[in-house]
Design a protein around this nucleic acid. Structure first.
Lengths: 344, 344
DNA sequence: AAAATTTTTTCAAACGTTTGCATACATTAT
DNA sequence: ATAATGTATGCAAACGTTTGAAAAAATTTT
C-alpha cells in the first residue's frame, strides 16, 4: 500500500537533486531554465502525475478563482438558466462556481456566506432566501460588505443595500400579462400570488394590481391567493377561486408551475381553457410550450440575467474604490399561447 | 480608502504585542491561555471581523472539506433531487459541495476533474457526460484513481471501472412500465429512447425489449426512436410514430419530459389519452402529477440516490486500503395515473 | 589567463495558521 | 533561600508554491 500523498514539487526536486525553485520554474516554462532540465522535469512530472497544489497557490497569491453562487433552490428552470448564464461568462475566465443551495433557509444562507468568505471566495452572487427576506435579517451580509468582496444580488434583493443587482422587470411583465387578458375580453382576473415579502412576488403582484387599476377594475381581495411557487400549492387556492359565488374568468399565476396546477384543477371541473377560463403563467419554462393547452407565459431571461450579473461582477472587480453600483433590469416578453386565446 | 486586506492573526498579535500562537490559541479556546488574554483577543477579533483563512488551514492540514459533484446538467428534477440528497447527508458533516455542470461536454468534465484534484477536493461524485460516454474516454479518470480520491459514480457509470456506484434500477423500472401497459391491453408499445450509449437509456431500453420478449411480442424497430431527454426532442419522433401504417397504441418515454412532449402531439391529433394511446414516463417529476391527463410514470428516487452515494463516500473514506467497492442499486416504483388507464 | 558576460541554479522569504517543545515567570513546598 | 511545581507565552517548523536577488557555473571576450 503506497500511501497516496500527492507528489509535490519538493519530491521532484529531491529526485533531480535540485532545488524546488528550479522545478517550479521548469514546470512553468520559465526562460532561465536549461532546456534539458526543463524537459526532464516536465516528463517526470507527467509520469508521476504531478498536479500543482492550488491551495498553496491560493494562499500565496490571495487569489482563489472561486465565486460563490448562493441561491434558494435549483429546482426550477429559471435558476438553472441563471447558473448557465453565469457559467457561460465566468468559466472561460477561469473561475470556478461554488453553487450553494439554501433551501430558503436563513441559517444555511448565513453559514454558506461565512464559509465562502473564510475560503476567500472572490465574489458572491446572492439570491436571498425567503426566510432571510421574511425576517429582514441582513447582518450576515455585513461581513461580506466589510471585506469588500464583490456582492451581486440576483432577482431577490434588499432594497436598502448598496450593491450591484441584476433583476428581471417583473412588474412590467406581470402588467403585460394581465393587460393581455383584459384586452381580449376577460373581466375577472385572479392572481395566484407568490410568498409574501419576496421581491418577485410583490413586483408581479403590483403589476397585476396596477394593471387592474389602469382599466378601472376594482381589486377583489378574494381573487388574490398565496402559493409557494410549487405546482401543488396551486391546487387548493384554485379550487377556492372556482368555488366563489362570482368566480374569475382568468387566472394570472406567479409562475408556470402554479399556472399548470391551476389548469389542472380547472380542466378537472369540466371547464374549458381558454373558453371558460384564461390562464397566464410566468417564466416561459420549457414545459410551458407543451402542456395541453399550451401556456401563455412571460419569458424571464434567466440566462441573460446570469450573463449580466457576471458583467456586473467583472465591472466591480476592475472598478476603482469609488465604484458606483449598477442596477440592471432586463425586460420580459409576453409569449402568447393557447391558454389565453379566447375563441370569441 | 482603507485597503480591505482581511485581518489576520498576525495583525491581532501586533495589536496585543503578543505572538501569533497566543492569538491562535486564544481564538481556539486553548486551556493554557490566560482568561483575560483570551477574552480581550476574542472580543477584538469579533470587533474587527476576523475570519480565519481556511485556505491556509487546508494547506496545513491537507484537508479541504470540499467535495466535487460533477453532473451533465442540473436542468431536470432528478439531478436536483440527487444534489439535495447529497446535501442532506454531507452538509451537516461540514462538507461543502462544489457543483460542476459539464453540459454533457467531455472537455469541460475533464477540466473540472483536474481542477477539483488541484484544489484537493476530498471526494468526487460523478455522473459522466454523454460525450465522455460516447467517446469512451476515461483517461481523465485515471488521475482521480491514481490519487486515490474517493470517486462515486452516480447513475451513468463506466461498466469497467473499479469504483463505488449508486444507481437506480432502470431496467426493472422500464420493465414494469411496459408490463403495466401490456397487461391492461395495449398491444403495440413504442419507445422514445434516450441517447445511445448512456447507461440510463440502454437499461431502460433493455427493460422495454425484454418485457416485450417475455410477452412474445416481436420488436418492431420502427417503434423505437431516439430523443435527447428534452421535451422538444419528442415532437418529431412522436409524429413519425403516429404516421406509421400501423401506429403504436402506447408509448413508453425514456423520461417524463419526453412523455409530455409525446402527449401533446397525440392530443393535437385529436387522439384520446389513454383511450387511443397509453403513455408512461419515467422520473416522477413533480409536474407529472398535474399534466392533463396526469402521467403514469416510474418513480426514480433521486434524493435517496444522493443519500446512498454519500454513504458510499463515507464508507470509502473510513475504509481500509483493501476497501471493496460497493454497488448500490435502488428500486423504482411504478406510479399509475391517468395516462395509462384504459377505459375498456 | 584574467576579466567580463551570459546562463543556470539556489537561497530565502512570503502567504496564514497550528502545535510540540522550550522558556519565562509566578507560586508553592521544602 | 532553594527547589519544585504550575501557568502563560514564545519559538520555530510545517503545509506547497512562487519569485526577486544572490550565487554559482559556464561561456565569451579581452
Amino acid at each position: 500500500m503506497n500511501s497516496s500523498r500527492p507528489v509535490t514539487i519538493k519530491d521532484i526536486a529531491r529526485r533531480f537533486r535540485c532545488s524546488p525553485s528550479t522545478v517550479s520554474r521548469a514546470l512553468n516554462d520559465h526562460p532561465a531554465i536549461n532546456e534539458d532540465t526543463r524537459k526532464n522535469i516536465q516528463e517526470y512530472a507527467k509520469e508521476v502525475g504531478y498536479q500543482r497544489n492550488e491551495v498553496s497557490l491560493s494562499l500565496l497569491n490571495k487569489k482563489t478563482a472561486t465565486l460563490g453562487v448562493v441561491v434558494p433552490t435549483i429546482g426550477n428552470y429559471y435558476e438553472t438558466a441563471v447558473i448557465e448564464g453565469l457559467h457561460t461568462i465566468l468559466q472561460p475566465l477561469g473561475y470556478t462556481l461554488n453553487i450553494c443551495v439554501t433551501n430558503e433557509n436563513y441559517l444555511l444562507e448565513k453559514e454558506y456566506l461565512s464559509k465562502l468568505l473564510s475560503n476567500r471566495t472572490e465574489g458572491i452572487f446572492l439570491s436571498v432566501s425567503q426566510e432571510t427576506y421574511d425576517a429582514g435579517y441582513y447582518e450576515h451580509l455585513e461581513s461580506v460588505i466589510q471585506r469588500k468582496t464583490p456582492l451581486i444580488f440576483i432577482d431577490r434583493e434588499y432594497e436598502d443595500f448598496e450593491t450591484s443587482r441584476a433583476t428581471v422587470d417583473d412588474y412590467h411583465g406581470a402588467f403585460a400579462a394581465v393587460e393581455h387578458l383584459l384586452t381580449i375580453g376577460y373581466k375577472n382576473v385572479a392572481h395566484l400570488k407568490g410568498p409574501n415579502g419576496l421581491t418577485v412576488s410583490e413586483q408581479r403582484f403590483k403589476g397585476y394590481r396596477d394593471c387592474l387599476k389602469k382599466y378601472d377594475i376594482p381589486i377583489r381581495e378574494e381573487l388574490i391567493i398565496n402559493t409557494n411557487f410549487k405546482v401543488e400549492s396551486a391546487i387548493v387556492p384554485t379550487k377556492r377561486l372556482l368555488d366563489l359565488d362570482s368566480p374569475p374568468d382568468a387566472i394570472f399565476g406567479v409562475n408556470d408551475q402554479v399556472a399548470i396546477g391551476a389548469m389542472r384543477v380547472i380542466l378537472d371541473r369540466g371547464l374549458k381553457i381558454p373558453g371558460d377560463v384564461g390562464i397566464v403563467g410566468f417564466d416561459n419554462s420549457p414545459i410551458s410550450a407543451y402542456t395541453y393547452p399550451s401556456l401563455t407565459t412571460v419569458h424571464r431571461p434567466g440566462r441573460k440575467i446570469g450573463m449580466e450579473a457576471s458583467r456586473l461582477f467583472l465591472n466591480q472587480l476592475n472598478g476603482s474604490g469609488d465604484f458606483v453600483h449598477e442596477n440592471i433590469v432586463l425586460p420580459t416578453e409576453l409569449i402568447i399561447r393557447e391558454s389565453s386565446l379566447r375563441i370569441s
